[in-house]
Design a protein around this nucleic acid. Sequence first.
DNA 1: CCCTCGAACGTTATACTATAACCCATGTCC
DNA 2: GGACATGGGTTATAGTATAACGTTCGAGGG
Lengths: 130, 130
Amino acid sequence: MTRLREQVLSLIWQSHRPLGAYDILDSLNADGRKAAPPTVYRTLDFLQRMGLVHRIASLNAFVGCTQPSHHHSGCFLICETCHNVLELPSSSIRNAIEGEARKQGFAPRETVVEVTGLCPACKDDGPTNE
Amino acid sequence: MTRLREQVLSLIWQSHRPLGAYDILDSLNADGRKAAPPTVYRTLDFLQRMGLVHRIASLNAFVGCTQPSHHHSGCFLICETCHNVLELPSSSIRNAIEGEARKQGFAPRETVVEVTGLCPACKDDGPTNE
DNA sequence: CCCTCGAACGTTATACTATAACCCATGTCC
DNA sequence: GGACATGGGTTATAGTATAACGTTCGAGGG
Ligand SMILES: [Zn+2]
Ligand SMILES: [Zn+2]
Ligand SMILES: [Zn+2]
Ligand SMILES: [Zn+2]
């Protein structure tokens, strides 16, 4: 864990929404570091390999993992209004999906599950607040 | 259904792999049409709204739907070697996921399920053929 | 018939996301 | 000290997507 990696991880943890790579880049540069895109993407790759960060494919953005203890593909509920993301403990869902895949003779390696919709707060608050 | 839309849909159907928007763009232009990116993206938006085409978020690419009769989010098995994609009839999986989401008070609208791995053919053929 | 309106598409420019390729500094092992 | 691996800076470029505006054409109403 280097200073750069800590810095990026901390940015991701402090935001409760997914961060784009260029958001992170801007924060780093605002913070005095002289970074360019490859720096950020390399760091994100590392954090993903460590299981500390997930990429949200449908948003091109990155979130901290809430169960970094073991490697896993995540399962995410993404609010379209407030943009908060909830990571579900996904093992049962993933098992179901990968079971279905194996039934087709397919050997799963990585599974993306991303549900977009409205979180409890935004669902109840009606269409008033964006 | 206009000529352009038919043309794009036919390109997508003829390819058994996901096509990138710029692949489609190149095909159109090779075919005499003078198209630019917005033309392609607009057409793809339309075809998605019609339920004829799905976007694969983890590939930034588009595939034809195999059950265009009713609107649905797809559930895809994506081979990392041959790049073929199989769309599963996903209702049971989607129900499970969306049930889990509702348990959290979340109102699901769209669900992305994308499994990458090896298809039956590539799994058995070993690492020989790319 | 002429007018209005909206849909489809062309056109230009630009934003956003990600990677290639190369360099140098530092640390470890022999 | 030399060989090698890792981290990260630097420059350039590739790949994906949208904003904003203009033109054409056809449907429907006066
Ligand atoms: Zn996680
Ligand atoms: Zn919300
Ligand atoms: Zn489908
Ligand atoms: Zn395959």
